[in-house]
Design a protein around this nucleic acid. Sequence first.
DNA 1: GCCCAGGGCTATG
DNA 2: CATAGCCATGGG
Length: 271
Amino acid sequence: MTAHLRISTFSLKDTLECGQFFRYTKAMGTYLVQSSNRLFSLWQKGDVLFYEGVEEDFLIHFFRLDENLDSILKEIDRDLSIHQAIQKYRGMRLIRQDPWECLLSFLCSSAKSIPHIRCIIECLCRISGEKISFGTYLGYRFPEPTSIQSEVQLESVRAGFRTSYLVKASQCIDRHQLLALRDLPYREARQQLMNFRGVGKKVADCTLLYSLDFLEAFPIDTWIKRGLEKIYFSGRRTGERKMEEFVSNHFGPYAGYAQLYLYHYWRNHRS
DNA sequence: GCCCAGGGCTATG
DNA sequence: CATAGCCATGGG
């Protein structure tokens, strides 16, 4: 029933709770996770990850456990700030989400607090009507693109001005098309995503980084913007163009991991 | 009643 | 390009 997996340089807590992923709950040290039509539980003790209701292969893919995180962290460890973040949260990994679920999640994210984003996504899944169970746990599947057809249908989700974004995305996207973006250069893939209503640079970068293996993507939200200005631009107001150029040069091809660590660090040490 | 929340769109310098 | 006002909703 309960299986386990030995892992190094992995923090389940930080990986799930750092804001990159929304469909999880926590009860007494055990996390209940929903992703890619799965509902499973897991918990960590030291360097052992225990899990139920999911295959080992999926976990390795989902948590990127076959990726050498130590060597990546060594590469982005370029200054005191990122060094402190790495020291505090070493083991936090990017999650490889389903692209469709990831895109819709961040379509819901604009000008919303994280708890409310999670709330909206759960309401959205309830719309699908397809239940999923594991032991005594119950949940709803994430709706497929074809199952979201009108704004009226999403009334109970109360997503506000984001509702039309969700419907339009559903009308012209199939999952296959999103996965195919992985074969494009970063800039082109981002531009493709930005052709959808409601997808700007930030949402596009979140989708590319959290679900499509573009580790150079560096989502710039309000927290990251404030942090970058304070730490790397002497507190001066700075345009996004300059910021993009800086993080790309400063952190290199794994800049996305730097973003993950800085975001989590700056949010948990508000100063 | 006010302000803010993992933004984006649109109309303007 | 950079900025301002607006967008719908909930919580502090």
